[in-house]
Amino acid sequence: MSAFTNHFLFEFKTGIRNSSAMLMLYMLPLGFYAAMGFIMVEINPGFKELLIPAMIIFAIMSSMILGFPTGLVEARESGIYRSYKINGIPAVSILIIPALSVGFHGLITSAIIAVTAVPFFDAAEPINWLALVLISLLVVFTFSTLGMLIGVVSSSSRAVVLWSQLIYLPSILVGGMMIPLSLIPEAFQKVSGLLPSTYAMQAYFAYAYQQESIIEPWVSITVLITSGILALALSIFLFNWDSHNDTRRGSPLLGLLILIPYVAAILYSTLS
C-alpha cells in the first residue's frame, strides 16, 4: 500500500478507536440531531425546513472545529510531528490526511442525518439531492481547512477552545442554523457575515432547497471556496513541527487573514 493509503487508513481508524474523536465525530452530532428532531420540531414545526442543513453543518462543525484542531495541537506538543519529520512525512501529509479522514467521518454523519431526517422527523426534503451532496463536500472543505488553521496557529489546547468557540457558538446562535437568518436582527445579520455557517446555510437553501436566500448564492459559494483555499494555504505556510521551532515562517497572527473573504462579502452586501 502507498504511504497515503497507509496513513489515511490509520487516521480513519483513529476516528473510531479514539473515544474523544468518536464523541466529536458521531456521538455529539447525532445525539444533538436526535434531540433537535424529537424536541425542536415539536416546539417549532418551522424547524423542519432547517433540520437537515442545520444538523449537517452542526455535525461538520463539531468534528472539524471542536475535535480536529485539538488533535493537531496535542500531536505537535507531544512530539509526534518531530517523529514524523525525521521519518520523512511531509507537512502537507500531516495536515491534509487527518483533514480528509475527519471529513470522511463528517460525510458519514451527514449522510445518516440526510437519510433519516425525512422518515423519522418529517424534515423538509431537499429538492436537489445532488446539490445537497456537493454543498456538503464544500462545507467539509471549508470547515476542515478552518479547523486545520486553528490547530496550526494555536499554541495550546486552551487556545484551540478559545478560537473554536468564537466560531462554534455564534454559528449556532446567529448563523441561521436555529433561527432563519431573515428573523435575526439586522445588526446580528452583519455579525453572522463573519461565520462560514451562514454562507453554508444560505447555499443549501438556494441550491438544495431552491428557495430564495438572503445572501446571493454565488456569494455564499465564493466565500466558502475562498475561505477553504485561504485557510489551507495559511495552514501550510504557518505549519510548525514543534512549539520550540525557531524556523517558523510567519506570525500566527497571519491566520487572521482568513477573515478577508468574509469581510469582503459583508462589504459587498452593504454596498450593493
Binding site: S2, A3, N6, F10, T14, G79, I80, R82
Partner: peptide, 26 residues
Amino acid sequence: GVQLQTSGLPDNMTVEESLNIFSAYH
C-alpha cells in the same frame, strides 16, 4: 535513522501500522 529523546507516536497507532506507514514514506 533517529531515535529521539522526546518523541512519540499517536496513542492509537499500532506497532504494525507505525512500521507500515514509516516504511511507506521511506
